[in-house]
């Protein structure tokens, strides 16, 4: 009898765990990225990307587009001779992503604590704290050049933080969201990560990730492959075509205008 009671108790506890597990996974964020792959062909000029999904009612949303982090080397401009602006050195920024686009329903600093921002690398404030710059001599100098880095990237449309583009609608206990954005053509072809964070009480409650593949296709892919993998053939063919183009136009002009 005692044995039977123990088995019943064990089953009850296990059932509770299972219920808790399934109920929590039922709350996990479900979302879709459309299209899941962007094909970069010769006429590519960016693409429309739509992210739709659902979180718990009362939660705020942050959507982040990023690529694998790496080191970036950029030239720094400064004054020489107290008068002339020119390149005066080089900086290494590490770790940084080629693309860092954030879309949130509120300002990040009002949604998350500093620790949470840093933990999930969310927002420019966290970015400034995480990224290392060398060579710099002080923290203020580092901050200045990280700000310049952000400005440089924002200028080409691959970095940005927007608080007014995620549309939401609450239905019962759920909040649906929709983000439609113009994917920048300046973002290089590679695999990107789309992360969606559900935020409440100054902390990330839940998050989920999907990939967005930006891929060269067709003739564009063929040319790129030739340039990097068969560089000598690529060079010779390019020069031959340039010579031929110059010659053909020259012949056309000779015939067309009657010049001697």
């Amino acid at each position: 009898m005692r044995m039977f009671k123990r088995i019943c108790l064990f089953n009850l506890v296990a059932a509770c765990f299972l219920i808790m597990f399934f109920s929590s996974s039922a709350f996990s964020i479900t979302f879709e990225v459309s299209p899941a792959q962007i094909s970069v062909d010769s006429l590519y000029h960016g693409s429309k990307v739509v992210v739709t999904g659902e979180v718990e009612a009362g939660e705020d949303i942050i959507i982040k587009f990023s690529s694998p982090e790496k080191k970036a080397h950029l030239r720094k401009k400064g004054k020489r001779g107290g008068l002339l602006w020119m390149n005066v050195g080089e900086f290494e920024f590490n770790p940084v992503s080629d693309v860092y686009l954030l879309y949130s329903t509120q300002d990040i600093s009002s949604m998350l604590t500093k620790d949470q921002q840093d933990k999930y690398a969310l927002g420019y404030d966290a970015f400034k704290r995480i990224v290392e710059v060398s060579p710099v001599s002080s923290e203020s100098e580092k901050e200045k050049w990280v700000e310049e880095f952000i400005k440089f990237k924002e200028n080409t449309g691959v970095y940005g933080h927007f608080t007014d583009q995620v549309e939401t609608e609450t239905n019962g206990g759920k909040k649906t969201f929709r983000l439609s954005l113009d994917w920048p053509y300046q973002a290089p072809p590679q695999e990107y990560t789309v992360s969606v964070y559900a935020v409440k009480d100054n902390a990330v409650q839940n998050y989920n990730q999907m990939s967005l593949n930006v891929k060269k296709v067709g003739a564009l892919n063929f040319i790129s492959d030739l340039a990097f993998n068969k560089a000598s053939i690529y060079g010779i063919v390019s020069i031959f075509i340039a010579l031929l183009a110059g010659f053909i136009v020259s012949v056309i002009f000779k015939g067309g205008s009657g010049a001697h």
């Binding site: 080397h73 030239r75 401009k77 602006w85 050049w145 310049e148 400005k151 440089f152 200028n155």
Partner: peptide, 8 residues
């Protein structure tokens, strides 16, 4: 310059 960084 408006931006003090440039590509190599």
């Amino acid at each position: 310059p408006s931006i003090l960084l440039s590509m190599k």
